[in-house]
Design a protein around this nucleic acid. Sequence first.
DNA 1: TATGAATGAGATTTCATTCAT
DNA 2: GATGAATGAAATCTCATTCAT
Lengths: 189, 189, 189, 189
Amino acid sequence: MKEFDKKEAIFNAMLELIVKHGFHASPMSDVAKHANVAAGTIYHYFKSKDELICALYVRHKEQMNEILFKNDDPSRLFKDRFRIFYLLLFNHYTKNKNEFIFLEQFINSPFVNTFSRADLQKFDQPTYDFIRKAIFTQVLRDISPKILISMIMGSAHALIKLQLSGEYNISLSELETAFLVCWDGIKRP
Amino acid sequence: MKEFDKKEAIFNAMLELIVKHGFHASPMSDVAKHANVAAGTIYHYFKSKDELICALYVRHKEQMNEILFKNDDPSRLFKDRFRIFYLLLFNHYTKNKNEFIFLEQFINSPFVNTFSRADLQKFDQPTYDFIRKAIFTQVLRDISPKILISMIMGSAHALIKLQLSGEYNISLSELETAFLVCWDGIKRP
Amino acid sequence: MKEFDKKEAIFNAMLELIVKHGFHASPMSDVAKHANVAAGTIYHYFKSKDELICALYVRHKEQMNEILFKNDDPSRLFKDRFRIFYLLLFNHYTKNKNEFIFLEQFINSPFVNTFSRADLQKFDQPTYDFIRKAIFTQVLRDISPKILISMIMGSAHALIKLQLSGEYNISLSELETAFLVCWDGIKRP
Amino acid sequence: MKEFDKKEAIFNAMLELIVKHGFHASPMSDVAKHANVAAGTIYHYFKSKDELICALYVRHKEQMNEILFKNDDPSRLFKDRFRIFYLLLFNHYTKNKNEFIFLEQFINSPFVNTFSRADLQKFDQPTYDFIRKAIFTQVLRDISPKILISMIMGSAHALIKLQLSGEYNISLSELETAFLVCWDGIKRP
DNA sequence: TATGAATGAGATTTCATTCAT
DNA sequence: GATGAATGAAATCTCATTCAT
C-alpha cells in the first residue's frame, strides 16, 4: 500500500466516523481500525486529532472549489453560470452526504477557530470573486458581497440539509423554483 | 440558593462551555465549577450529560418561539409581520451570541438525532404554520413550505453568523435590504 | 480510608517504584496498583506525574530537615553537633534506602530544574545556616560555605552510597574514622 | 560519512538529549534526528536503547581513565600526583558538562544495575590501585580504600556539581583550598 | 549499510458517573 | 438535596523496534 493510500484511508475513516458520531465519540482507535492502519500510523501523517480534522476541512474546501469552478465559463450569461453553480452545489452535496455533514459540523464548531479569518477567507475566495464581479457589473443587487454570499450559501445549504434529512424529497422542478427564489432575491431589481 | 437557580446556573455554564470549547472538551467537572455546584448535583437535575445538552436545546427552542410569536398580530399585513419576525430573529441572536452558536452546533451534530423527526418538527411548528398560511393565502410563492422555511431560515442564520463573526458589520439599512432580498425571493411573483 | 492515607499511599508507591525501576519504567498505572487506588485518584491529588515526583522531593527534604535539626543544641560544642549531624545523616539513609536512592536520582535528573535555584536553596537553608555560623565563629576553615557544604555532603552521600551498595560494610569504628576524615578536612587548621 | 562518524554522532546525540531531558523523554527518534541518521540505523550499531546508554557509560569511563592516568608519574611525590588527579578531574568535567551530568544521572539510575559489581569495579580499577598503594605506603590514612575513594570522589564530584550549577563560581585559589580540605582529611595524620 | 514508514503495546491523562457522608 | 472524593474505562498520544526497500 502506498503512502497516498494510507493518508486517504485515514481521511475517509475520520470523515465517516465524525459524520456518524461527532467529533467527540470518534476515537482515534476507531479511525485506525476503519482505515486499516495502526493507531500510531495516523500520527505519522498528522500531529494530532485536531490537526487531522482541520486537514480534512482544508482538503474538502479545495476539492469543492475545484468542482464548482473548474468548468465555469465567464463568457456566458451570469444567470446561467450562477444556476450551474447552484445546481453543482446541490448535486455534489446531496450525492456526498458525508462531506456536507462534516462541513456543517466543522464550521459550526470551535474547531473553525483554529484558522485565522484570513485563512478562512482564502478558501472562499473563488466564490467571493464570482459574486463580487457580478455586483460590479450591475447584475446583482448593490449590496456587500459578503452579505449576498452569506444569504445565497445559507439558503442553499439549508436546502441541501432539507434534502439530506429525508424529511422531504425535493424534485427537479422544485429545485429550479428554489433557484428562482434565490435569484429573484439577489438580482438587481 | 433555590433549586431553580442551580438548574439555571447549570444550563448557563454548559451553554458557555459548549460555545467556547465544543461538546467534546466541555467536561461535567468544568460545568460544575462554572455553575458553582458540586459535580454530583448536576445529576440530580439531569440523568446524563447528553440529556443536559438536549434539555438545553429544548429550553432554547421554547424560549425562541415565545420571543418570535408572542406579539405576532395576524390581523396585520403579512409582509409586515414577516419583517418583524425577520428582525426579531436577527436582533435576538446578534444580542445572544452564545445561544446562536450553541443552536448551530447542536443542530449540526449527531446529538440532534436524539430527537425523533416528529419531536423536531414540533419545535418548528409555529414557524411552519406562520409560513404555510401565507402560502395558502397566496402571499408567498406556491412551493412546499418546508423548502421555503429552509431557505428563509438558512439565509437568515447565515446573515446572523456573518454579523457574529465580526468579519463584517451589517448596518440597519443593509439589514433592511437583506430583508428585501429574502422577501423578493419568497413572495408570490 | 482517609484522604491523608491515599495521598501517603501514592507517595510511597511512587517512591518504591522509582527506586526499583527509575522514573521511566514507573508507570502511573503501577503506582495506582501499588497504592491500592484507582488511576484517576492520583490525578485528584497531583496534576501530573511530574508534579507527583516533585512533590515527593519536597516532602522528603522537609522530613529530612526535621530529622537533622530538631534536636540540635546550639549550646554544645560544634564538633559534637556536627558529629551528630553526620551520624544522623548516615543512619537515616542507611535505614531508609529508598529515600536516599530516590533523592540521588532526583537531584541528578533534569526534574530538579523544575525548581528555581531559590527554591532549591530554601530546602538546604538549615544546613547552610548551620555551617555558615561555624565558619563565622572560626571553627571551620575560612572558605565559602557553599564549597564546604558541597564537599561535606558529597563525601557523606558517597559513603552512604557505598554502604547501601552492599559492596562494603562500614563498621561503627570506620564510620567514626570517616567522620574524622571529614572533620580534619574542614576544621580550621 | 564513515561508520565511525555515525556511531560517534549517535553517541553525542544521545548524550546531549539525556542531559537535557533525562533517559525518559529522550526518544530514539529524536536521537536519530540529532545524529542525522535514520532511526533504523541506530539499531545497526546498538541492539537497543538500553545498550546504547550503557555503551555510552563504558565509553565515558574508558576515556576518563585515559585522561586521569596517562600522564601519571609514579616516581613523583604522591601528594603532587594526587593534586594533579584532583585538578584534572575538576577541569575535565567543568569543561565537559554534558559528560558529567550524564555520568551522575547514569550511576544514580537503575541502569547501573545492568552491570555486575565486578564490571563496575573494573572501570574504577585504576583509581582504586592509585589510592590503595598510597595507603599501603603509609601516605594515606589506614582506612579501607573503598571508603577513602568514596569520600574523595564524592566530595570532588560535589564540588564539580557546584561549579556547573552556576550557583557559585569557584576560583583557582578556592580550588586549591578545596584540594587541601580533601588532602588534610585523607592524609595519614 | 542505510532508510524511514509502519507497527502496536503501553504510557499518561481525562472524564462521565457514582455513592458515602 | 448537595457534596466532591473516588472510580476505572477509555481517550489521546508516544516510542522502541522492525522490515521491506
